[in-house]
Design a protein around this nucleic acid. Structure first.
Length: 573
RNA sequence: GGGAAUGUAACUCAAUUAGGCAGAGUAGCUGGCUUUUAACCAGCAAGUUGUGGGUUCGAUUCCCACCAUUCCCA
């Protein structure tokens, strides 16, 4: 540090740190002028988009005396000696600011050299409030002829490249706020998402459905086959699960006498991450008493097409260059029939599994270990050979009973249940049954699940006795429906990945380096402090590990391969 | 869990084929400029080449491990 700071009295650096320091210096200069770089309030009279529309007919070079006040972020600066053009972006769009030195200095005479201060102290990224009149420049750009300005928030960090924007996918997800600033279509995606969920709620409320919130923290996860997140309640000293479905609680409400209920909310499944899966995602479940799955098909069709019409103004959408027609009615076909169409195998004809299995293998279907019934085989054939070809909205109906533990047996097809799934662009988008209301049948099926859990299936769950008790009080015939909101939003916003429709998708935390470590030989506890400040105590760590950790040239590498995931730990900080 | 690709300045990208001083544009800083639209002109500054090892006189480049991301598969 000491020796080499003599010659350059003011080195012009532009690392991120230097840019930031420079802007902090500007914050101070703004304060020194008696102004607040972090203002409290700005009275906005118009949004940019509205002005663009309202003054669309204003001819080039003409002005109008209408006073407006706008606020937004400076996205671009084109500065001349005594004139400057800024591009201001608010939530709705952009508008140019026409900043004339003479005008500003005369109307803001309280602040000497106001124009030069703006030139020197503002940067792209700052939030600026301006008042002025409207003027279309000679080059044809609608502008605000600024009379008065205020820097409302000083930005300390530079925006991404003004032309290329932010394209690094990881940064877009990790720093969504920057993505939103510079990529208008991302803002639009989330605007549409909000309209979709609002539209769904409005649709259901108009039909007398009641939205009731069920618990996220549950003592037993149920209602789906999925691995749950487990958490812990300290004062109650109990494990709790984050819900994997809202099904079992919404059905309790049907038992309680509500005929039409729904919940649109967050579901958590402790599973992998992909373009179609996020560990927390949004689902709506709808239950209607005295209805069956045929009614739910009609509801699904009408709900989705109505919302598409309302939000996009059409029921014909383009998804990844493919035309999808959501205009009802949608095709309805049984699973058995569409598998037969595609593979030529009629699974209804089999009465023994081995014959069915060899037929399936002949058709190129892979038969996994745990697939031991004709019903499961049919489902395998469907998933492997049919599913991804279902591009246009299609209801697949009448599922095997083995894979549908909460659905009512089909009224006239033995071995099947009254269930449908909706497929659009090859993806499961909705799932629905005539709900099982027979408490004894339900008990048997849940106990079979519990046996699977006992045998080590992490996606199976214990019997929810309270739910069964509810059923024993008697649940009316009920149609139930679940729709994956994220997938629906993907479809309606033409988004290829679920992460594009989730504002803050889950990403792995960037690994942190080991800062220091310490070993308690008596208790065999290895305490590790990481660079991010967290401290972990690894338990029952043999001394040899500690010694090797001390010796190793790369602590991080040794930690990853020999300690992390190998020992139990308590997190201290 | 397996495979492929990627990671270089704050942002967008070169240089890696066959190891030889890491280079542009944008953003930034200084100066100039009253009609710009990715403004322009002159100058300046800006790098732990994801991390840690190895090979080598010399590594962004070759090898190994690890981290993260993207896509595909399970």
């Amino acid at each position: 540090m000491a020796g080499n700071q003599s010659q350059n009295n003011q080195p012009n650096k532009s690392t991120l740190e230097e840019i930031r320091a420079n802007r902090i210096e500007k914050v101070q200069q703004i304060k020194d002028l008696g102004l607040n770089p972090y203002a409290y309030k700005w009275e906005v009279s118009h949004y940019a988009q509205l002005l663009q529309e309202k003054y669309a007919e204003l001819p080039d070079g003409e002005e109008v005396a209408d006073e407006v006040s706008v606020a937004g972020r400076i996205m671009a600066r084109r500065v001349f000696g005594k004139l400057a053009f800024f591009e201001l972006q608010d939530e709705t769009g952009k508008i140019q600011l026409y900043l004339d030195k003479k005008k500003i200095n005369s109307t803001m005479s309280d602040l000497t050299g106001a124009f030069n201060h703006l030139k020197k102290l503002s940067d792209t990224g700052d939030i600026l409030g301006v008042k002025g009149t409207l003027k279309r420049t000679e080059k044809g750009e609608l502008s605000i002829y600024v009379r008065e300005f205020a820097i409302l928030t000083k930005s300390l960090l530079p925006l991404p490249d003004k032309w290329h924007g932010l394209t690094d996918t990881e940064k877009r997800y990790r720093q969504r706020y920057v993505d939103l600033i510079v990529n208008p279509q991302v803002r639009n995606t989330f605007r549409i998402r909000a309209k979709i969920t609002a539209g769904i709620r409005r649709y259901l409320e108009q039909r007398d459905f009641l939205e009731i919130e069920s618990p996220v923290l549950q003592s037993e996860a149920g209602g789906a086959e999925a691995r749950p997140f487990i958490t812990y309640h300290n004062t109650l000293e109990m494990d709790l699960y984050l819900r994997i479905a809202t099904e079992l609680h919404l059905k309790r409400l049907i038992v309680g006498g509500f005929d039409k209920v729904f919940e649109l909310g967050r579901i958590f499944r402790n599973e992998g991450v992909s373009t179609r899966h996020n560990p927390e995602f949004t689902m709506i479940e709808v239950y209607q008493a005295y209805a069956d799955y045929n009614d739910m098909m009609a509801l699904t069709e009408d709900l989705i097409s109505s919302v598409a019409q309302e939000v996009l103004g059409t029921t014909k959408v383009t998804y990844q260059a493919e035309e999808i027609d959501l205009t009802p009615p949608w095709r309805r076909v049984t699973m058995q029939q569409i598998v037969q169409e595609t593979t030529g195998i009629n699974f209804a004809q089999f009465d023994n599994f081995e014959t069915a299995k060899s037929a399936a293998k002949e058709a190129g279907i892979e038969v996994p270990e745990d697939c031991k019934t004709i019903g499961k085989l049919l489902n395998e054939a469907f998933e492997q050979k049919v599913e991804e070809s279902l591009i246009q909205p299609t209801f697949i109906i009448d599922y095997p009973i083995e894979i549908s533990p909460l659905a009512k047996p089909h009224r006239n097809k033995p071995g099947l249940v009254e269930r449908f799934e909706l497929f659009i662009v090859g993806r499961e988008t909705a799932n629905s049954f005539s709900e099982l209301t027979d408490p004894l049948d339900q008990r048997e099926r849940l106990e079979a699940q519990a046996a699977k859990k006992e045998a080590g299936d992490v996606e199976a769950h214990d019997v929810d006795e309270d739910f069964l008790a509810a059923l024993e009080y008697g649940m009316p015939p009920t149609g139930g429906l679940g729709i994956g909101i994220d997938r629906l939003v993907m479809l309606l916003t033409d988004s290829p990945s679920i992460r594009d429709v989730i504002a803050f998708p889950l990403l792995k935390s960037q690994s942190v380096a080991v800062k220091s470590f310490d070993y308690d030989a008596e208790k065999q506890i290895l305490k590790i402090e990481f660079n991010n400040g967290s401290i972990y105590k690894y338990l029952d760590v043999p001394e040899s590990i500690y010694k090797e950790l001390k010796e190793t040239p790369s602590v991080g590498k040794y930690f990853n391969s020999h300690i992390k995931d190998k020992f139990g730990f308590d997190r201290e900080v």
